[in-house]
Amino acid sequence: MKIERSEALWLIASILLSSTPVAFMTFEFMLPNVSFPAIGKNLLAVFLLSMVAGMPAGLLNERTKYAVMAVMAYTFVGYFLSIVFYSVPYSVFGAELAIPGLYYTQFVRFTVILIFLFVFGGIIGMVVGQFVRDSIGREETKILWSEKPDE
């Protein structure tokens, strides 16, 4: 089935909106002592927060296929965004970077495990988001059908 314009917009919106918590969690996991708010290197907290980050994908995307796509996409966009923020001292503020290859390799080595948590937690969050969305839809239909017609 062809993707509709509104579906594409919701997909993009959910990717952009959920990428920032992923970026923050990755950055914070790498540098907890200079981050605010600091959740420390706590994988359980990261997993729980990644569930919350996955909820917009379920809430905003009507079709499950696009919701799952959103989870995958925002994980990778967020991860890339965290690398961009990680490079800020050198790319924006002009600090000296001795060994660039090692610098970024270290980042990936310390944080790559989080990608699995983001995807797994995100899909659970997405399912919860879809459940909430469906519940709201059912409730609204019920309320709509129980209203008495105007006389």
Partner: peptide
């Protein structure tokens, strides 16, 4: 979702600035 996202965008921006200043 926008509020949730904005909170983390501000947080990561502030954290990156702090990281830069310490470096």
């Amino acid at each position: 979702s926008v509020l949730f996202s904005a909170f983390f965008l501000v947080s990561i921006s502030l954290s990156a600035v702090t990281y830069s200043k310490v470096t």
